[in-house]
Nucleic acid binder design. Structure first.
Lengths: 240, 240
DNA sequence: TCAAAAGTGTTCCTGGTACACCCATGC
DNA sequence: GCATGGGTGTACCAGGAACACTTTTGA
């Protein structure tokens, strides 16, 4: 990786001016069954920061887009296939990587942890979920990236219907409310929450109910994406 | 710039894997005296797209941050010194530059066009202001970048007090209202607008009035940044 | 005296907020 | 029968929206 200790035969790409490396990093959010917000981290098995926890990510190849790189790294390192993925911010401080100048384009992803367990990493390194308010210390400037992602998630959640990405296809209003309470960090009134979300006409009430719960089974709902797109066309603004 | 037609002596930087170039581009917004929203463009005097209009921008040096690169390019190409500058989005499509893979980190800036005229570019190429709804065709994917910046500006303007960056230090409520009407593209009720903005207690009413206007002179106001920071601490949310 | 913008209050209505009890189920 | 969440309505209040006229100034 460093020019100094390799011969030209392994360094076939030459440029008139020095160039930084470009990476992508992904902050993957998931919501567990106890309504805790979690982030997926990888234990590094290479220097620098070997053994420390870091965001999944890696170098952008010359023939792939940034988003393709993010999706590829997610697949390779965590087994995640299809997710909500959105660009977060590009971090370019000079010393954020001790080896050389590395600019990273950060993405954040929302995955549904309810129905299936994300596979651990496919290679030797470990992947694990951590509750956001009990994260280990992170490699590079990944703690700053995580904080930025958290703020973005909180902001977006209030003004766009992205919370559903963290829930299974069919969910209860209680789950949805807990999601908002967890991510926004404030309790919400049950009756007012239901009134507000149902009045939006974005949820399809199913004729299905929870199974195997030790209390009255709640009705299941589904998010009506099509309806949302149509309402948005007409100037409707989602807001919780 | 291309590997093919230069000797190694001019291409002293070698890497194991190919690397894209990194540039920054700036969408500079200004508001003219007729309450029109304008963008600052540069006429390119180099290939590719020679003679076409493009956003001010250029290559990121290995020893400068992204923001520093954006500020430097603004200074060099337009003479703009201190502005509101915020990262917008990073564009990484494979073919967005016909020469080679170039990833650009876009910024948007807000400048005050009222008190002084922005200098034209310092080199031979031309800089000029264009009304946003009458832009010429742009080089590269710069039209997409402009559209992204416009959406961001409209979104931010409603929820953060950044509109003041487009006005002089001392402004009238009428100017402020016209700003919102222009950027958001909708008319606002004069009485309701004044009530709302004054009730926020974010404006300092000065004992100064407009000069040399052919109608009753309006009172001048100033944005109270300190007060805004304090209110924000306490959970206050700006919203128009 | 005309043109252009400054400046000012009230009414109505919508939507947010606060709040408490009974129901169904499994253990 | 107890614990857990499911499910429901009303009263109050704040803030948004609609709306018209008089004042000031310079040309």
């Amino acid at each position: 990786m460093n020019n100094e200790h390799s011969t030209l035969s392994f360094m076939p790409y030459t440029y008139e001016f020095p160039r930084p490396s470009i990476t992508v990093d992904c902050v993957v959010f998931g919501l567990d069954r106890e309504h805790k917000l979690k982030i997926l981290l990888i234990q590094r098995n290479l220097e620098p920061f070997k053994g420390e926890w870091a965001l999944p990510g890696g170098f952008v190849r010359i023939d792939e887009t940034l988003e393709a790189a993010a999706l590829r790294e997610l697949r390779e390192e965590t087994g995640i296939e299809t997710v909500f993925l959105e660009q977060l911010y590009t971090f370019g401080k000079l010393d954020r990587d001790p080896r050389e100048r590395v600019i990273t384009v950060a993405y954040y992803a929302l995955v549904n942890l309810w129905e299936y367990q994300i596979r651990a990493a496919t290679d030797a390194s470990d992947a694990a979920w951590f509750t956001v308010d009990a994260l280990p210390s992170l490699a590079f400037d990944h703690d700053r990236i995580v904080q930025t992602a958290l703020k973005r998630l909180q902001g977006k959640l209030r003004y766009e219907p992205i919370g559903f990405e963290l829930l299974p296809e069919k969910f209860t209003l209680f789950q949805l409310q807990k999601l908002y309470e967890t991510v926004l960090g404030q309790e919400l009134d049950k009756r007012n929450f239901r009134k507000k979300i149902l009045n939006m006409n974005l949820l399809i009430a199913l004729d299905e109910f929870q199974q195997d719960v030790s209390h009255r089974a709640a009705r299941l709902y589904q998010f009506d994406r099509l309806q949302y797109e149509q309402l948005k066309e007409k100037g409707f603004n989602f807001e919780i």
